[in-house]
């Protein structure tokens, strides 16, 4: 009945009858509201804008074209090798050639949190709840121990570097500080330590990497993150 209601398949009389029932039965009303939220979430996760762009496979090229394709590929490989050689002679590159510089993402995510009022998505009431949350989203339970001057505010899930990056929001001596905890992937370069007035301090924990983004000169929250 709820499905038919949300799908708009009920006729006028049935719709009104169900709405009267929902007014009287909170459980029914909550189920309808939950189903509406589920449908919205599915549309967000699987909507056309999130779907991969796909085209039909192209027919195989003829041999003559294939020869040119091989020649072009060889030329690209040769050019890339020359570029790598030159860069290695010049020292480390200032910009990683990966498309997305992670440090900018951390800095902009930090700024977004500030602009949004620096309010966490949710608060864990106990260490166990905190550890379970990290275990669920990153596969690594962690706890945050207490320290003077450090006020833990809560957690937010931020799509920085990976879709499941956990942000620990805290105030350190009154300053807003965020620790982003991610499961590192091998093709991601570590972010630089300084970015436009912010310091970014990395640390590797067991199976996860954490980055403290702070206006302070020293990391104060990283050392508080521990395995339970």
């Amino acid at each position: 009945m709820i499905d038919a209601y949300l799908d708009g398949l009920l006729d006028e009389d049935d719709r009104r009858a169900l709405e009267r029932r929902m007014e009287a039965e909170p459980a029914l009303r909550e189920a309808a509201e939950l189903q509406r939220r589920i449908d919205e979430a599915l549309c967000r996760s699987f909507g056309v804008e999130t779907a991969p762009r796909m085209a039909a496979p192209k027919p195989k090229p003829r041999v003559a074209r294939r020869v040119w394709a091989y020649a072009a590929a060889a030329a690209i490989v040769f050019a890339a090798a020359v570029v790598v050689l030159i860069q290695s002679l010049q020292g480390p590159a200032t910009q990683p050639w990966k498309a997305r510089p992670p440090a900018e993402s951390f800095a902009s995510a930090y700024q977004q949190e500030l602009d949004a009022g620096f309010t966490p998505g949710w608060v864990c009431e106990t260490d166990q709840e905190f550890a379970d949350t990290f275990d669920r989203y990153l596969g690594q339970p962690l706890v945050l121990t207490a320290a003077p001057g450090v006020e833990a505010l809560g957690l937010s899930l931020k799509p920085v570097q990976s879709r499941r990056t956990m942000a620990v929001l805290a105030r350190v001596d009154g300053e807003p500080v965020i620790v982003f905890v991610v499961r590192p992937s091998p093709d991601q370069a570590p972010p630089p330590r300084v970015d436009e007035g912010l310091n970014i301090f990395p640390i590797e924990l067991d199976g996860v990497a954490a980055y403290e983004v702070t206006p302070l000169d020293q990391p104060r929250v990283l050392e508080l993150l521990k395995e339970p």
Binding site: L34, R37, I38, A41, L42, R44, S45, G121, W122, R136, Y137, S156, L157, K158, P159, R163, R164
Partner: peptide
Amino acid sequence: TPAGQLAAGHEAVFDDSVL
């Protein structure tokens, strides 16, 4: 994550739970 434990509007967490 049960829907009732989530902060309202925290879509990413709810979306993960839905998945």
